[in-house]
């Protein structure tokens, strides 16, 4: 290799370009709340990028935009999905659901569950949805629940009555039960004790090791420094005049 050769840029797993988002609150007389403007970022396979900044900087909104939960007004959100590139900002609902099933994992801060479904099924569900056998999906779910220290007696109970920390760990197990190529993490360690925090750091390291691209918000500086390859600073947008 000649000394001037530039190594090829790694192909992105996720690329956000010129992303703009604002909320128009019709119920409050049409007040416009700017959230993001001109946002750019790329995450490569095997890389973990942390979003950092004060509350109101749009960190969680950015994750929701990438997941297709919020609608983008400007720009593109390109995700590499089974050999193609899909722009979440313009994809059909059917395509976004396919993306979420196979490519995009999202660990949110809140667990939304169906009233009577046992924790083990809540965790195994994403694995079933990508076509894993019941036995394999349950095996993976059990392994994650054990690693995240959810006592076995809780596995058959619906998580609605679990503590905040237990619910967060159910959410984490759901996010890691499938080897998603792109994983979005919103404060994944906020309600966890030191042992479980270490488990989450290990899960993130393993995901990077298999080539996943991770984009996350880590309030805890120790976790952030341990898992993030890069930190992107965000600040609240200027209020519209």
């Amino acid at each position: 290799m000649s000394p001037n050769a530039v190594p090829p840029a790694p192909e992105f797993a996720l690329a956000v370009t010129g992303l703009g988002k604002q909320f128009t609150l019709h119920v409050q007389g049409g007040v416009v709340l700017p959230v993001l403007s001109g946002m750019n970022l790329e995450v490569a396979p095997g890389e973990c990028v942390a979003l950092n900044g004060p509350s109101g900087a749009g960190k969680s909104s950015l994750l929701r935009l990438v997941y297709g939960n919020y609608r983008a007004q400007k720009g593109s959100i390109r995700v590499r999905h089974r050999g193609q590139v899909v722009d979440v900002a313009t994809a059909t609902p059917q395509k976004i659901l396919e993306l979420r099933r196979h490519t995009l994992g999202y660990v949110s801060q809140f667990l939304r569950v169906i009233p009577r479904v046992p924790a083990i099924d809540v965790v195994a569900e994403p694995a079933r949805a990508v076509g894993m056998s019941l036995a394999e999906a349950e095996h993976r779910a059990e392994r994650l629940l054990s690693r995240l220290r959810i006592p076995e007696r809780l596995w058959s109970l619906p998580p609605a009555t679990f503590s905040g920390g237990e619910q967060q760990r159910i959410n984490l197990a759901r996010g890691f039960v499938v080897d998603f190529p792109v994983l979005l993490l919103d404060e994944p360690t906020a309600a966890l004790d030191a042992d479980n925090r270490r488990t989450v750091m290990a899960l993130i390291a393993e995901a990077k090791g298999r080539g996943a691209a991770l984009l996350g918000i880590f309030h805890d500086a120790e976790v952030r420094e341990a898992v993030a390859d890069r930190v992107i600073a965000m600040r609240p947008p200027a209020m519209a005049a």
Partner: peptide, 21 residues
Amino acid sequence: EGLTDQVLDDPQHAYTQLLVA
């Protein structure tokens, strides 16, 4: 119209916003 969680979490139309609120 749109993806369920999008319509409910980021409603665009004034009427949908009122319903969700």
